[in-house]
Design a protein around this nucleic acid. Structure first.
Lengths: 127, 127
DNA sequence: CGTATTTACGTCTCTCGTAAAGATT
DNA sequence: AATCTTTACGAGAGACGTAAATACG
């Protein structure tokens, strides 16, 4: 599996959607040569032709059809994961341990901890 | 979603498996700096910390834990797709249409077609 | 004729390794 | 002291755009 396999899958899907390399190039704001090279890389990586190229029409091979179905799912799931993990942003969670003298702790630490927990319910503090 | 998102997911998984950046670097035959930069890129892309770094131990954050679970599945599925589509290699399939005069067809084309179909059962020929 | 794919070539970005510094046990 | 993470920096690889050639409708 080559360096940019998943990345070029997105290009491949765009080519199928657009119905042409040029259309996909416009959609992605790059030149057609970029598209050609990425699809070529995919085909060489897989050792299979994905698209029958003619000047006016693109046809999916059987391998291309299969890859297209699966690529749609892959890109969707990757985007889901990205969004889900990015949603952890700003959240404070996990376990925090603090060691100190009891008198110091009661006087200075506990109030701060109480405020932190009020603000971040997912934060656990152990003794 | 950044350029090499799926690619760096593999690095991330290797780091978790190895339990250290250096271990993952050895496993991948690269220098530790490469690992650091790829994990940094992932974290910046997601806007979330994935690993708590200490010199002697790595700890997954909640976001890191979640990403790890999903990354395992993603990499597995991508490899599956790669293998499945690559398996189309060498197979001849799809629809082939040939136009010619009946006398010529019967004399020269049909025998060849019969041989082709015998060799490649997935090949369909229409009239 | 207009638009599409393809490729050679120069440029430039970006990634890598080296090496040094800081941190931790 | 030994091993780890981190970062600045120079070198190298790789991707991009341009532009010309080719094919097709």
């Amino acid at each position: 599996m080559r360096p940019h396999f998943a990345e070029y899958l997105a290009t491949f899907v765009d080519v199928v959607r657009a119905g042409s390399f040029s259309g996909a190039a416009r959609r992605r704001a790059v030149t057609p040569s970029v598209i050609v090279r990425q699809i070529d890389a995919l085909e060489e990586d897989l050792g299979v032709a994905l698209l029958i190229r003619s000047t006016r029409a693109l046809t999916l091979t059987d391998a291309g059809q299969r890859l297209h179905e699966r690529a749609l799912r892959h890109l969707d799931e990757l985007a889901d994961t990205h969004a889900e993990v990015a949603a952890f942003d700003g959240s404070v969670s996990g376990m925090l341990r603090i060691a100190c003298f009891p008198t110091f702790g009661k006087r200075y630490v506990l109030p701060v901890v109480a405020a932190l927990q009020a603000e971040h319910p997912a934060l656990h503090v152990g003794s």
